[in-house]
Amino acid sequence: MSFGIIVFPEVEELDFVGPWEMLTMWSKLAGGPANCLIVAEKREPVSCAKGLSINPHVSFAECPPLDYLLVPGGMGTRREVDNPAMTRFLADQAPGCKALLSVCTGAFVLHAAGLLSGRTATTHWASLDRLRALGDVKVVEQRFVQDGNVWTSAGVSAGTDLMLAFIAHTAGEEAAAKVQLQAEYYPADTVYGSTASHERAPAYVKRPSQASGSAA
C-alpha cells in the first residue's frame, strides 16, 4: 500500500506533520502502508507557512499510483486551487485511491480537482462560510467527517484526529490503539482563556457552562 501526503509552498506545518506522525507509526507498529511518501509538484525543498523547509520524496511526475492521498491546508491553498498541475495530479490519482483525505483548507484543493462536489465536508472554522459559498458541498462544523471514501477535517491540529480515526476505520481499533499509545496522543480538554467565548469558536469546543455542567 502507498500513502501520499502532498505539500506545497505555504502549507501549514502541523496539517501534514501530525498526520505523517500517525501514518508512519501505523506503518511501523500495526501493518500500515509500507510506502509513505511526501509528494510535491517538484522534487525540491518546499518552504512551509511558518518557515519549515521540507524535502519531498517524489514529484508529481515521479509519484507512483497511490492507495491513499491526503491534502493539507494553509495559505498556499489559495494559490493551489488555481494550479493546473495540482488539480490534474489529484484528478489523475483519485480513481485509483481507496480514500482521499484533507486537512483544514485542503478541502478547497480537493474541490478544485472535482473531488468534493456533492459531499459532506468540513474545514477550518474561519473558512466554513467560504466552503459553503461553493454551493455544492454540504458543510458541517465537526472535528472531522467521512463521506464515503472522502475524509475532511477542521483546522491544523484536527488532522491528527482525522488520521487516527482513519486508521481505526481502515485497520481496526487495536491498530489505532497501538499508534495512540506510542504517540502518547491523549489530548487535554483544557480550553484556555476566552477561546470558547469567541463568536466563531468551533461548535464542538466546550463552552464554560458546558464544562461546568459536565463536571457536576
Rank of each mutant, 00 (worst) to 15 (best):
K138I: 02
V71L: 01
C36D: 05
L101T: 07
A196G: 04
V150D: 14
L14E: 06
S59K: 03
L70N: 00
G31W: 09
V205P: 03
K138P: 08
V81E: 08
I54K: 08
L23C: 06
T87H: 10
R143P: 12
G51E: 04
R88M: 01
S2A: 15
L134D: 06
K206E: 15
V103Q: 14
Q210E: 09
Q142V: 09
K28S: 11
N35G: 00
L52F: 03
S127V: 03
A107G: 02
A107E: 04
Q146V: 11
L90W: 01
V109A: 08
Q146T: 13
S59R: 06
R200L: 12
N55I: 15
S127Q: 08
F16C: 09
Y185H: 13
T105L: 13
A168Q: 05
E13A: 15
F8D: 12
S153L: 12
T123H: 06
T105E: 15
P202A: 11
C48Y: 03
G76L: 05
E184M: 10
C63V: 05
R43F: 05
P72Q: 11
C48E: 03
A49N: 06
A30I: 08
A158P: 04
S27Y: 02
H124A: 04
K178Q: 14
C104L: 12
K50C: 11
R143Y: 10
A49I: 06
D161Y: 04
M22E: 09
K98G: 13
P187F: 03
L101I: 08
V150W: 11
G155C: 11
K178C: 02
V191W: 03
E12P: 01
A94R: 04
T24I: 03
A30Y: 12
G31H: 02
I38R: 01
A133C: 09
K206H: 05
K28I: 01
T77K: 01
S157W: 09
A183W: 09
M163T: 15
I5A: 09
L23A: 07
R200G: 15
P65Q: 13
A94I: 12
